[in-house]
Design a protein around this nucleic acid. Structure first.
Lengths: 334, 334
DNA sequence: GAACTTTTTTGGATCGATCAAAATTCACCC
DNA sequence: GGGTGAATTTTGATCGATCCAAAAAAGTTC
C-alpha cells in the first residue's frame, strides 16, 4: 500500500495524493474528493520510515524508564504513561520507551538522537543535580521535565504538581474540622519536593494564624524511621500532615504504639494517594497528583517547543487534589 | 553523520562500511580495522528511518498501555516495563508505547502495522475472550502475551507466572509451620488466573493429605467483600491463602472484627506482593511475580518468533517467589 | 484572441541505508 | 606469466514519501 497505488486508483499523480494528505487546501475540491475516496477505500497509511527519512523527524518522543530501586514504590505512573501516550497520539506522536540508567547518564539519550530515533524527550524523576536538562538544552533538543528543576538557573520547560498547594489544602481541611495544632511530618531539608510541601504547610498555618513552633519533624522516607520521628510531636498535635503516604503510615504506627487511633484521636493526611492509602484501616486521606493532566500538559509544552524551538521556557504548575477519607474525619458512630 | 562520510574517511565505499556493520566477516581484517576506526572516531550511528525503510523492519515492538480502571491497582508493572525495555535494547529493539483502549480494540494495532511503525507486539492483561491474539495470529504478526490465553484453542506464544505454584508454595510454607486447616480465599470461579491459583492450593493440600472441604470461599476483588466472605471460614481454619493482596487485606479486617490478630492467631498469605504488602502491620507474606524475568522471557520468545515466523508456539511458565513476612510466622516475643 | 496571472498537476531529485550483481584484487598453480 | 577460482570491494538500483522547480490548465484582462 503505497502512495503510488493510491494515485493510480484515483487517476492522479503521486504528488497530488501527498498534497491531499499534507496540504489539502492546495487541491481543487473535485480532485480532493476523488483522492480522499481512493485513500479511504484502500485504507492507506503513510509508511512512517519513508516519511521520517524525508522529513527528518521521527514523530517519536523518548521516555526513559528508570529501574525502580527495590521497595520504593514509584507513585504508580501507569496513569501518567497512559495520559502521555494518549495525548501524544492525538498530536500525531508516539512514545518510545527505553531503559535509562538510574543515574541519568546521557549515553542512551545521545544514542537515540544520533540514530534520529526520537525528536524530543520527556524526563521524569529529575532530581537535584540532574545533568540531563543542561545536556539537552545545550544541544537544542526539545524536552519537558515532569518535576521542576530545583537547581534554579536552568530554564527548560517543565510541568509539576504544586506540592505546597496540596499540603496547604490539607491544612485548610483540618482547620475547617476544628484542628489547631497541626504538625508536619516531612523529609530532611534539602530536597526540592520535600521543602515545597513543607512550605505549603507553614504558609497555610501562618495564614490561619496558627503556630508552627515545635510542630515540624523530619524523617527519611521509611515507615519505621517515620514512626520514631513523629512520636514526640504526637503529644503536642491533634493532626499530622505528612509529606508522603509512607510517612503517614509511620504516623499510624506511632499512634498505635500509644494506643491512639488515627482519624479518631489524631487526624492524619498523607501525600501521593498511593494505592495503599485507600486500603488502610482507617483509610488514609491523601493528596492526589493529577497525573493525567500532567501527561497532557507535558505533551502540550513539548508541541509548543517543537514548533517554536527558540521560544521562552514555559512552566505549568498543577494543583493536586485532596482526597478525604476516614483518617481525617471523625469516624461515624458504628 | 552518514555512511558516506565514514566511507570517505576510511577510504572505502559506502557498501563496505555497511558490511563492516552488518556482516563484518565479509571484510578483510585489515579493511575492517580501518573502517572500525573511522566508525568509532566519528561515533557513527545508522539513521534508523533509512535502515527501516530499506529493510522493512522498524525494530520497534508495540506495547499498548490500557487505561487503569480507577481503584484497581495494576500489579505495579513499572518493573515489567523496565525489564521489557532493557531486554529489547539488548536485542537491538525498542518499545513503542501507545494508548490502547480498555476493551482491546484492534484498530490501534492495525494502524501501527499499516504504518510499519512496529514489527511485533507484546500484549498484557489478556483477558478471556480477548480478540487480539486471534487477530494477530491470522495476520502472521509476531506477538507474545504476558498471561496465557485461557481460551484453550488459540496457540500464540505466551509467558506467564505459575499461579498454582505460588499458592502451593504458600501451602507448603504453612504446613511446615504446623498448620493443617488452611483455607483458600479466592475469586469466583471462571477466571483463568483465579482458578489456577485455587488449583495450586487444592493440589498442595491433597499432597499433604489435608482436607479442603468447607475451606474454600470466594469473593470479588474488593476489601470489604472479602472481609464478609472470609468470616465464616475463620472458625474452621488456622491459616488463609488468598488469591490477591486485596483479598488478604479483607481477611485482616475480618480477623480484627473478631479481635484476632493476623500472623499471631491466624496466618495469612497474599498474592502479588503489591507495595502495600510490606507496609501493612503485620507485614503481609505474599507471592511475588518475577516481573523482570517475565519481561526478559517475553522478548526472548518474540525474538524467536521473529526469526522463525512459522515455528511452533512456545510457552514459558515462571515460578513466583513466596516472600515470608510477619503475617505467616509467629511474631517474635516483643 | 493574445498576453498575463493564478491555480493545479507533473517529473525528477532526495533523504540514508541495504540488496544484488558486477568489477576488482588476490592467491595459487601449471 | 597468464589462467583459474575464490575472496574482497565497488557500482547501481531501490525502499516510499516529500521537496523543488517547472509544465500544464484554468481564469482575467484588454
Amino acid at each position: 500500500m503505497t502512495l503510488a497505488l493510491v494515485a493510480q486508483r484515483a487517476g492522479v499523480s503521486v504528488q497530488t495524493v501527498s498534497n491531499a494528505l499534507n496540504s489539502p487546501d492546495l487541491l481543487a475540491p473535485r480532485t480532493l474528493a476523488r483522492v480522499n475516496e481512493a485513500l479511504s477505500e484502500l485504507d492507506y497509511r503513510p509508511h512512517q520510515a519513508a516519511r521520517s527519512l524525508r522529513t527528518r523527524s521521527s514523530r517519536l518522543i523518548g521516555y526513559g524508564v528508570q529501574p525502580m530501586p527495590a521497595g520504593v514504590s514509584t507513585p504508580v505512573h501507569d496513569d501518567f504513561l497512559h495520559a502521555l501516550s494518549d495525548s501524544a497520539d492525538r498530536a500525531g506522536y508516539r512514545i518510545l520507551l527505553f531503559a535509562a540508567s538510574a543515574d541519568g547518564e546521557a549515553d542512551r539519550y545521545d544514542e537515540l538522537l544520533r540514530e534520529h530515533s526520537v525528536d524530543a524527550f520527556v524526563l521524569s524523576n529529575t532530581n537535584r543535580g540532574d545533568k540531563r536538562p543542561a545536556w539537552l538544552l545545550k544541544r537544542d533538543v526539545p524536552f519537558v521535565a515532569f518535576g521542576r528543576s530545583w537547581s534554579a538557573r536552568e530554564h527548560g520547560d517543565w510541568v509539576d504538581v504544586d506540592g505546597a498547594h496540596g499540603t496547604a489544602a490539607a491544612v485548610g481541611h483540618l482547620v475547617a474540622a476544628g484542628h489547631r495544632r497541626i504538625a508536619f511530618l516531612g523529609w530532611p531539608r534539602g530536597s526540592g519536593v520535600g521543602d515545597d510541601r513543607a512550605r505549603g504547610w507553614r504558609e497555610a498555618m501562618r495564614e490561619h494564624a496558627l503556630p508552627t513552633r515545635d510542630l515540624r519533624v523530619s524523617s527519611v522516607n521509611d515507615v519505621d524511621a517515620a514512626r520514631e520521628a513523629v512520636a514526640p510531636v504526637l503529644a503536642r498535635a491533634t493532626a499530622v500532615v505528612a509529606a508522603s503516604d509512607t510517612l503517614a503510615l509511620g504516623c499510624y504506627r506511632a499512634l498505635r504504639d500509644r494506643d491512639l487511633s488515627p482519624g479518631r484521636d489524631v487526624a492524619v493526611v498523607g501525600f501521593d494517594d498511593s494505592p495503599a492509602a485507600a486500603l488502610l484501616a482507617p483509610a488514609l486521606s491523601s493528596v492526589r497528583q493529577p497525573l493525567r493532566e500532567v501527561g497532557r500538559a507535558c505533551i502540550g509544552l513539548l508541541m509548543d517547543r517543537i514548533s517554536a524551538p527558540g521560544g521562552a521556557a514555559q512552566h505549568v504548575l498543577l494543583p493536586p487534589e485532596l482526597v478525604v477519607r476516614e483518617s481525617s474525619v471523625p469516624l461515624p458512630p458504628a
